[in-house]
Write a protein that binds this DNA or RNA. Structure first.
Length: 469
RNA sequence: CGGGGUGUGGCGCAGCUUGGUAGCGCGCUCCGUUCGGGUCGGAGAGGUCCCCGGUUCAAAUCCGGGCACCCCGACCA
């Protein structure tokens, strides 16, 4: 008998579906304070994998990790006019400490450009100190109007990179390097989320940046999610914080800085991109448990055999776990692992043991297959690769099926309600963008017609418009 | 801020119109049974009915005031 679906139909209410999956898969729950989130052990396991994968790529791009304070003097934020204007509505500010009103309020960091600016100004003296490539893993706070678990929480975990360069070209190249080699590489390669890369319009640009680049993914309901950003900050912060250096000709010059970030939102994006009505589908390369060996009933040494198989899987490089908790019914456990999205289940019972076989179940298609117990480790390893590639292919096909090419504003509004619409930027422009916004549709990014990331806004550009989370 | 809605065991809810011993499902504990896709039966534990005040013999229920939260719209990684 097939299990009843534990989730509401996706067509009913995707946001509700998402909340249900997050709660039932034991990833996270709402925290005690408004808009905050408690990440549960299973959810944190996924986050740790994301963090490790991203950290390795960032380091490969030459950046080093640092840790800066949580509190920022309010005056720091004021130094860059656009920056403070952009963030002031969503700041949490400490005005009392030690039982007394503070002389200067402390802002709980919403992002750390100002703090990095202050410190970089001290650390950079000469062109020999450049480029200065820094990264920080930290929590930040933004008092958003409408929080959503993983996607937009009041407090969230992220990495924020901050760099200083001698020239505009060097800064621009580095911001793009992070975009491609760290962010896109990880999201496509491990999360199996096919992101579109491009630049933001002036309207959507980061507060204080001269150029904002983005990675946009399509969720299972056709809405867009920004999975990460990389900003060129020009000399705005260098001027405000006096991040200056002496060049080889003894001339004092402002640096060119960048900042870039990705967050726990990636967990949410992964869930909403791949999840189905039976719960999560975690891409194998990301999964902290890639295969669970499920003991149907512990008779005739089934549990011992399960442990042996798990050890064999580990030897083959598969992150495996044994579920011998037979006090809980088999159906219950099977459904729980399915809900958690573990890519492969190896089920073994007395009958299998007697016949020298196991039952292999792949989560992505929910299909079962009986295979000899002898070669199961190699079979699982192969299957994981196949599932990884399959999830990406499925996500690409789904996105492309929901992407239309249009040439008029009306068609863009229509198509943007349920998916992505590509429209020549000339046909839209600032006015068209404003009209779209009234309909709840935004320009997610601008691209070259061939999908490339533009270096400037000259020449032909295509806008991708959609509803966003 | 605008528009809707809800506060009742851990979670999800009914009861309120028409006042009269506080209930149901899930979860939890114990016993038995079942175990190859969320077994079944039985016995239990667990509640200031959001808060304050009023009406009444009697308030989860009616009246007044307050508080909190959720959903939809504008914001964001």
């Amino acid at each position: 008998m097939p299990p009843r679906s534990v989730l509401p139909s996706r067509a009913d209410d995707f946001a509700q579906w998402y909340q249900e999956v997050v709660a039932k898969a034991e990833l996270a729950e709402t925290g005690p304070a408004r808009g905050t989130m408690v990440i549960r052990p299973y959810g944190y396991g996924l986050w740790e994998r994301i963090q490790a994968g991203m950290d390795a790529r960032i380091k490969a791009c030459g950046a080093e990790n640092v840790y800066l304070p949580l509190f920022i003097p309010e005056s720091y934020l004021r130094r860059e006019a656009e920056h403070v204007e952009g963030f002031s509505p969503e700041l949490a500010v400490v005005t009392i400490a030690g039982g007394k009103p503070l002389e200067e309020p402390l802002v709980v960091r919403p992002t750390s450009e100002t703090l990095f600016g202050e410190l970089m100004a001290k650390w950079v003296q000469s062109y020999r100190d450049l480029p200065l490539l820094l990264n920080q893993w930290a929590n930040v706070v933004r008092w958003e109007l409408r929080p959503r678990v993983f996607l937009r929480t009041t407090e969230f975990l992220w990495q924020e990179g901050h760099t200083a360069h001698a020239t505009r070209e060097d800064a621009a190249a580095y911001a793009r390097r992070i975009l491609h080699e760290a962010y896109a590489d990880f999201m496509v390669g491990e999360l199996a989320v096919p992101v579109l890369l491009g630049v933001k319009t002036a309207r959507e640009r980061f507060a204080g940046a001269i150029n904002t680049m983005t990675l946009e993914a399509m969720m299972g309901d056709g809405r867009a999610l920004q999975m990460g950003t990389s900003h060129e900050l020009g000399q705005n912060f260098a001027r405000a914080f006096e991040i200056d250096y002496l060049d080889a000709g003894d001339e004092l010059r402002h640096c060119w800085t960048t900042s870039w970030g990705t967050s726990t939102r990636m967990v949410g994006g992964m869930i909403m991109c791949h999840g189905d009505d039976f719960g999560l589908r975690v891409p194998p390369r990301l999964a902290h448990i890639q295969a669970v060996v499920l003991v149907v009933r512990d008779e005739d040494g089934v549990a011992d055999e399960a442990r042996r198989i798990a050890a064999e899987l580990e030897d083959a490089g598969v992150r495996a776990r044994v579920d011998a908790n037979t006090a809980t019914g088999f159906g219950r456990r099977a459904t729980d692992w399915e809900l958690k999205g573990v890519p492969v289940r190896v089920e073994i019972g007395p009958r299998d043991l007697a016949e020298g076989v196991v039952t292999l179940v792949r989560r992505d298609r929910r299909t079962k297959e009986t295979v000899p117990a002898a070669g199961v480790a190699a079979a699982v390893a192969d299957l994981l690769e196949e599932i990884q590639a399959g999830l990406l292919a499925e996500a690409i096909a789904d996105r492309d099926a929901r992407t239309s090419r249009v040439t008029t504003l009306d068609d863009a509004i229509e198509a943007g309600r349920s998916g992505f619409a590509r429209i020549p930027w000339d046909a839209l422009g600032d006015d068209g963008e404003a009209t779209l916004a009234e309909q709840g549709i935004t320009v997610r990014l601008l691209q070259r017609p061939d999908g490339g990331v533009p270096d400037d806004l000259e020449g032909p550009l295509e806008a991708v418009v959609a509803r966003a989370y």
